[in-house]
């Protein structure tokens, strides 16, 4: 089993990369909304719901003191989407 510093050392860059990819997707979405005259629902209501789901998911992932496993909470959240 890894120690806390080992976990950070082993997974920091990979996590940084994954967060950047998510941030870039969010930026891409905002630009597309702007291109559609500010209408985020231009692609259908489902896309608006999905982006909200992702925003909730990010908040769960970033919670420093979750009640349970974040992964479980996220899978349950995505099961509702």
């Amino acid at each position: 089993m890894l120690t806390p510093p080992q976990i950070i050392e082993n997974y920091f860059l990979e996590s940084r990369h994954q967060i950047l990819e998510i941030a870039a997707m969010m930026d891409r979405y905002d630009v597309a909304v702007q291109r559609c005259g500010g209408n985020g629902a231009a692609g259908g209501p489902a896309s608006g719901q999905k982006i909200e789901l992702l925003r909730k998911a990010l908040a769960i992932a970033a919670d420093p003191k979750p009640a349970g496993d974040r992964t479980v909470a996220l899978l349950e959240l995505f099961a509702t989407g």
Binding site: L13, E14, H17, L20, E21, A24, D27, R28, V31
Partner: peptide, 17 residues
């Protein structure tokens, strides 16, 4: 690069911007 520099998707974002 796989994780340490730019990614293909982010590169295309910059090309579009």
């Amino acid at each position: 690069y796989p994780i340490t520099k730019c990614s293909p998707k982010r590169a295309v974002d910059m090309l579009e911007k």
